[in-house]
Design a binder for these strands. Structure first.
Lengths: 227, 227
DNA sequence: CACCAGGATAAACGGCCGTTCAGGACCTGG
DNA sequence: CCAGGTCCTGAACGGCCGTTTATCCTGGTG
């Protein structure tokens, strides 16, 4: 049933055109707002052909999830081979045609389908590996909760992506832009600058953070931000 | 089918019941997925009454935005009077009836209506104030970009809220739970623990972070993760 | 040639949607 | 008693939705 996604050369077939149109249309209008007729128009085909090739709109959406996850995994492998970075989404930026996938991901991450959940689990596992390497190399600090720290960092990264519109309004940065363009990279610095500052020096005095962390114990009922 | 939310007494006016039902229904099914008929059923009224009181579904959604923003602003004032914390959402947790608002916010933050955008701008300004106070008190470290740092911290916080489902799967914590319950607070520690560790000690060696920050300059094209 | 498998389409169907319409119950003041 | 408002409802309308049906076109195979 699954054709070879990795080949990618025959993106001229109607089925691939429909899938790509669906990804961008879902990203633009949301899954509910993107009608089959709109997707078909974007692919230059008739609405019934969409159903003919994918069975239903829901199945088409699942196919998009699978495709996006496959591309991300493939690109991640390529990036790993070239030397990994910290940004788990670097794999998609700058890749030809990767930006619509990034926007699709931003739009559908909150819905939580099975496929993107599995993808996130993978990304967390990868991130934990990167972080361990960084710790071993001495550039990253060790953690008492390595897996949870990897998850938190990934969730922050993806959360900012989901809220990209607000990132743009508040900071002027577009996280779904191609960062190989110098001006886009400079704009993204309004986000990555403070992030790297936080990553470097932290936010709080360590003793203060430690005291807050002890407050998470249930016996002491002083959670963060309570009287 | 009349259903009883917390409280039991439906002495609220029908308009308020419709608005509250809309908030929870929007939060559960999404704005597109929540039909007027479903909202009306949740409020124990007929569908036309929803339109009669609010004019249209879109106007009802705007009324929900306004109401949520008003409640958050009001609760924030109360929390400030009692001594502010760092968590910008602490205002909503533990407040009677605040949890549905939190879930509504998580569901609609990504859509970016005018009202929630204005609310976010307010929250950033407040956060900047809190951070400045913390710096002055010596518990927080100063920043070269105070406003941007406040925005980043708020975006991380809200991003985790939007991805609450993934937070639950990856860490077992529910950020939309009432953290005054000890077990919920303990579970939330799986998120807040690593967060406070990151806030305390940072993530990277400071020199390494500084070098990465310099890499944001356009001339040096070494973004994180290149081919 | 006949044949037919499959890509592609126009037309149409049933269903749910947001909304409108035409009133019914119920109070309040005369 | 009636008049007039307010709150509320059942029925219905038009429209868009995802999907089905029936049909055409095209090219490869015997």
């Amino acid at each position: 049933m699954a054709e070879a996604v990795a080949g990618g050369q025959d993106d001229r077939t109607a089925k691939a055109r429909i899938r790509d149109s669906a990804i961008t249309t879902f990203a633009t209008h949301g899954v509910d707002g993107a009608s089959v007729r709109l997707i078909a128009e974007g692919a230059g085909v008739s609405p019934p052909l969409v159903i003919h090739h994918f069975g239903s709109k829901e199945a088409l959406r699942r196919a998009c999830d699978v495709h996006v996850a496959a591309v991300i995994r493939e690109q991640k492998r390529a990036v790993i081979a070239a030397g990994a970075g910290l940004d788990p989404l670097a794999a998609l930026r700058g890749v030809a045609g990767g930006l619509p996938l990034l926007r699709y991901l931003a739009r559908t991450l909150a819905d939580g389908t099975e496929e993107v959940a599995a993808l996130l689990d993978d990304l967390v596992a990868d991130a934990e590996g990167y972080l361990a390497e960084g710790v071993e190399a001495g550039v990253l600090k060790p953690s008492a909760y390595p897996r949870q720290r990897a998850a938190v960092l990934l969730l922050w990264s993806l959360g900012a992506l989901v809220l990209n519109e607000h990132v743009g309004r508040l900071l002027g940065a577009d996280l779904t832009a191609d960062l190989s363009a110098p001006e886009a990279l400079a704009a993204a610095g309004a986000y990555f600058g403070p992030v790297l500052e936080l990553f470097g020096q932290g936010l709080m005095d360590e003793g203060y953070a430690e005291r807050l962390r002890e407050g998470l114990d249930p016996d002491s009922a002083a959670g963060p931000g309570r009287r």
